[in-house]
Simulated assay, not measured.
Amino acid sequence: MTDPMDTTRPPPISLIGLFLKFLRFGALAFGGPVAQIAMVRQALVEEERWIAPARFNRLLAVLQVLPGPEAHELCVHLGMMARGRIGGLLAGLGFMLPGLALMMIAGWLYVGWIAGHVGLTGVLLGVQIVVLAVIARAVVRIGQHIIEDSLLAGIAVVALIATLMAVPFWIILLAGGLAYAAAERPFVAVLVLLAPILGAMIVQYFVGTTGAAGPIVTHAPATLAMLFIAGLKGGLLTFGGAYTAIPYVRADTVGRGWISDSAFLDGIALAGVLPAPLVIFATFVGYVAGGPLGALAVTAGMFLPAFAFSILFFERLEAVVANPTLHRLLTGVAAAVVGIIAATFAQLAMATAARVDNLLIAAALFALALVVAWRVKGAWVTPAILAGGAAAGWLISL
């Protein structure tokens, strides 16, 4: 809710000028959401005074509770403040277009020139190993912000186990949210939390199943509608950072046989070095699965919630998010997402290990990358880790 004493407003700006301003932000959006938000804060809060610092902080707090890439949602909302809903649309498009264009080019190069190239097999495998280290560090970082008590930790652990047992993600998220909303009734909370695992055990006992070391591959055709839904699911369920979209996009693409786990990891690696929200990895996945139109379909689904929340609903969001019961529900969902990402990391690690000839060398490379990701900070760290992984993979393959 806007402070009635806050008279700070964006200066007059044309629609073209607004689009170009956020296009520049997008072209310089290296280093992940923290660096991207800091760049926007420096320019529009401290230098041009579009919005008061206190209002900016409240805006960020709301966006961090909601799903979607918060840096992109921030740009949409600031554009809307300047020139209404059309301004929000142009600001969001400007911020995402540089990364989208670069990822489309990367997808084209990958499909046409890189994938299947025998001489690059070792390089790509080295990159995939260190990407696992980056994901592992992200799981811990996200968890540190979300897991604040023993019940939330329990929700994350149950979500991890339930995911590996092939329990549908929506059941896991619902159970996590309801369990934390019922925290004042411990027996009810535990019962709700364990229901997905108990249900999976009953199904396995009476029906039989092979378990879930990874997504169940169905080999359904990659239609544009299904690619759009895969992206939309990721966009709607991105709680706590872009890495939380990984399980849902993977389940709907790798799980349908449209793309391999190795190519999926390559997409995450590319997204880590481009100036864009990390969820742009979905564009690469869509390109590999369905060509240029598939890439655009996934991207449209992924970013649609980020546009919609600010453009259509933001006036009501602060009051809704302030509701304590809803806040606990969302916190429980976020904790379940941590467990789902951890399970997805385990599945990706197993799939990568199956392609490795020397597990000892691969484990050493993973451990070194994890130490660097854990101890070193800066926008250049992820690109440096990926470059190191590529170099190590090339040397090992010689």
Rank of each mutant, 00 (worst) to 15 (best):
A271I: 09
L274E: 11
W258M: 07
G255F: 03
T253G: 06
D252N: 02
L265V: 01
L270W: 10
A269F: 14
D261Q: 09
P247N: 06
Y248L: 13
G255V: 11
G272Y: 04
A251C: 10
V254L: 10
D261F: 00
G272Q: 08
F264K: 02
G255S: 09
A245G: 04
W258K: 02
F264M: 03
R256T: 15
G272D: 06
I259K: 04
V249D: 00
A271L: 09
I246L: 12
A276L: 06
S260D: 13
Y248E: 00
A263S: 08
P247H: 02
I259A: 04
D261K: 00
G257H: 10
P247Y: 02
G257A: 12
A271D: 00
T253Y: 05
A276I: 14
P275S: 06
G257M: 13
P275C: 07
G257R: 09
I268Y: 07
T253R: 05
L270R: 01
A271Q: 13
L274T: 15
S262A: 14
Y248K: 11
L274Y: 14
A245S: 14
A276E: 01
V254A: 14
G267R: 05
V249P: 01
D261W: 03
I268F: 05
W258L: 13
G255D: 01
V273P: 04
T253N: 12
L274N: 10
P277I: 06
G272V: 01
D252E: 12
A245D: 00
R250C: 07
F264R: 00
A269Y: 02
I246G: 00
Y248W: 15
S260H: 07
D252M: 13
V249K: 14
L270C: 03
F264E: 08
G255H: 09
D266E: 15
P277T: 09
A245R: 00
A263W: 10
R250S: 12
A269W: 12
I259C: 04
G255I: 02
S260P: 01
Y248H: 03
G255R: 15
W258I: 05
G255M: 13
G255Y: 04
W258Y: 12
D266R: 04
P277V: 03
G267H: 11
A263T: 08
P247Q: 11
A271P: 15
